[in-house]
Structure formats: structure tokens, C-alpha cells
Design a binder for these strands. Structure first.
Lengths: 205, 205
DNA sequence: TCATAATTCAACCATTTGGTTGACTACAGG
DNA sequence: CCTGTAGTCAACCAAATGGTTGAATTATGA
């Protein structure tokens, strides 16, 4: 086996990631995953026991890819404006390659909050305290308005994620083809940075 | 039959709305809808022929409830700041009563963009031209920054909708119980108005 | 080389699920 | 009072779907 070829287990997993992201847990079919991996359906059960177990792994892996993207940047040592800029950049790079992940994860998180809670606890995910302290400090220094950290944080993330979550609607209403939507996404990066920093009256150095 | 009682057809439809919103098309079961309506499963087919036909009607009705909420306000005659304020108010009132509708509709829209397109065409839904013209005018007059209307519009809507489709995540990460989340939603209304108007440097009269 | 373990697959199996049938009931109109 | 129509339901049905099995094949390593 050369390094290029993936072994069966990995082949299945990759196919499962794609199919679950396209269809969600309920819409996904074991046969479809098998077909996508070009492999016999029994293999799925040989390596992963059940649809549920397989899904669990996919869910876990996608969550593990998604969450650090936020927190890695937010709890670093940077002034707010750079954080926001970096967050936008990091997110868009990631989401460009994984446009379906937002729709997928939010659907599954809402469908099963207990599983989400379990993941959060196991991974030791916490609100970004550093950012929250920083928001208060920089407001005290007069560099920006005083804002509620939860509101600010959910606003940034919401602004970034919304186009991916609502892609069908945006494209439908504005009648955008694939290229035009990509153009919209591209120009959004600049727009967002300005909009967000203005939103809290941030005075850039 | 008194006016209080609903007839079977309506009973089924209401139950279907609830179940489809909770579970989505794929996750919903005809039997579950029947149980929710406290009625024999055959009745569903008697009145609506098939799961697909029933779903179509539910989808249509929820879309028809959701879309006018945006466009009614946006294409009215008001200065931008009032529009934004009104939009936030209208949305939150509506979503308070229909918290599941966002998750439901966006999932189904993304799963089937063709059906969405069909709905948009049939209902004659267009981008809010009046707002777009107004944004240019008020920027010209120096009342606000010049912004790309598509970016602005998707930002407002994204900011408003995010808490509803990411409810599980927000509650999970910040460890909020139902009341605390309601409190977060309540304080968000004021935050958003400020944040959005600042975001485009809007000078209020 | 040969026994053992890991892997692959076609054929099955049991349950779930959307959908149908035909008998039964309630009732409106003649 | 009879008849036809709309509505209701328990029992069924066929297809889909997650999952199992056992035989065959392919590594593995002693």
C-alpha cells in the first residue's frame, strides 16, 4: 500500500463526513456512504459497528475542527482590532474549504443539545475569558464603547457564519450564481472588519 | 362543531407544522404527526395524500410567515435608523413565538434550493429595492457611510437570526439556562440597534 | 510453508416506515 | 326510512433501511 492510497477505514470515514454533511444524520443512508466510499456496506459495520457510532465520530471530528478556529484567535495576545481581523481571515479560509460544516453542525447541535454539552465538557471548552477581560479594559481606556462581551462575541461569529448558513436564501433572493456568491463573500471580509470595529466605536491606533 | 374545536384537517396541519419544525423532513415520522394530532395515521393520507405533499404545505406556510417579516419593514417609508429598530422589534416578537422556524427553514432551504427558488419566483420576492436606493441616498447626504446594500442587509438579518439558530451552542458555551438565555435575548435588542447604526456611522437626527 | 487472524462481500434478516384497503359510522337530503 | 357521501380506523402491504452472517480471500508471522 503506497502512502497515496487510503485504507478502507479512512475511506469510509471521509465518505461519511461528506454524506453526513450533505444530508444530516436523518437524511444520510448507510448505503449512500458505502457507495460514496465505493465499498461494500458491510464494511461500514465491520469498522464502525453502527450508523450512530459512525456519526458520533464524524460529529466529534467536525466539532473539533470547528471550535478551535474561534477560540484559538480570541484568547490570544492581540489588540481587539487585530483579533477581529484575524478571526475573519481565519474563519473565511476555513469555511471556504468547508462550506457545509456550519449548516451541518448547527443542525445537529440543536437537534441534540445533550451531546453538544457532553462535547463541550469533555473538550474543556470555556467562554474566552481573556477576550472578555480585554473588552472591559479597552473600554475603560476609552478605546471603544463598553459592550456586553456575550453580545459582542455572538455578533462577530454570527456575522461571519451567516452567509454560510443562509447561502441558499442569499443566492435565491439576490439571484446570485456561484461566482457572484463567491464575490459577495470576498467583499464581505473588508466590510465586516469596518462594520464590527465601527459598531463598538473602536479607535484604531 | 363549535368554533373552538378545529376540524381534523387543521388538527393534522398544526401537528405537522410542529413535528416538521422539531425534526425536519427527514426526521419527522407520519406516525408521530398522527400521534401529535391524536388521530389515526390514515387520516394524514386521506387529507394530504403523501408525506411530501403535507410537507410542501407546511414549508409553504412557514415561508409565507417568515419572509414578509423582513420585507414589509425594509421597503417601507422610514429613515434607516427607524427601519432597523422596527426590524429588530418585529423579528424578535415573531421569533419569540416561533423559535424553531429559523432552524427549520434554513435547513430545508439549503437542502433543496430548487424548491426555494420556486417559492421565491411564485411569491414574487425581490431584493428590497427601496432600501437599497435609500442606503445610497442617505450616504450621499452624509448621514452614514457608503455601504454595499447586500452586505448591510445580510448583516442585519444575520445578527438578528444568529441567536435562534445557534441557541444550543450559545447556551452550551456560556452555560445558560432558559431564563438566562431569555435575558440574553432581551438585552440583545438594545445592543443590536446601537451596534448596527454605529457600524455604518449613522448620524441620528 | 502453513496456520491464524484480518478483511471483504453477497445474501439475508428484522424492523421501520410511507402508504393502502375495506369495513364501519355519522349524517344530510330526498 | 333509505341512500349516498364524507370521515374514521384497524389491519395490511411493499419498499427501504440498519444491521448480521458465513463463506471466501488476503495478509501476517512463526
Amino acid at each position: 500500500m503506497t502512502k497515496e492510497e487510503k485504507d478502507t477505514e479512512e475511506l469510509i470515514f471521509d465518505a461519511a463526513c461528506r454524506v453526513f454533511q450533505r444530508k444530516g444524520y436523518d437524511g444520510a443512508r448507510m448505503q449512500e456512504i458505502a457507495d460514496e466510499a465505493d465499498i461494500n456496506k458491510s464494511m461500514l459495520h465491520y469498522y464502525y459497528r453502527s450508523k450512530d457510532k459512525l456519526f458520533q465520530k464524524v460529529y466529534q471530528r467536525e466539532m473539533s475542527r470547528f471550535f478551535p478556529v474561534i477560540f484559538g484567535v480570541l484568547d490570544s495576545d492581540m489588540p481587539i482590532d487585530e483579533k477581529v481581523e484575524q478571526l475573519i481571515e481565519t474563519y473565511y479560509t476555513f469555511l471556504d474549504k468547508n462550506p457545509k460544516i456550519v449548516q451541518f453542525l448547527f443542525h445537529e447541535m440543536n437537534k441534540n443539545p445533550e451531546r453538544l454539552k457532553e462535547f463541550i465538557d469533555k473538550q474543556g471548552i470555556h467562554p474566552p475569558k481573556k477576550l472578555m477581560r480585554q473588552l472591559n479594559e479597552e473600554a475603560q481606556e476609552g478605546k471603544m464603547d463598553k459592550v456586553k462581551p456575550k453580545q459582542f462575541l455572538t455578533s462577530i461569529v454570527g456575522l461571519i457564519l451567516f452567509p454560510f448558513y443562509s447561502q441558499a436564501m442569499i443566492r435565491g433572493i439576490f439571484d446570485l450564481n456561484e461566482d457572484e456568491f463567491a464575490e459577495y463573500l470576498k467583499e464581505r471580509k473588508d466590510f465586516l472588519l469596518n462594520f464590527i470595529l465601527n459598531g463598538i466605536n473602536y479607535k484604531r491606533q
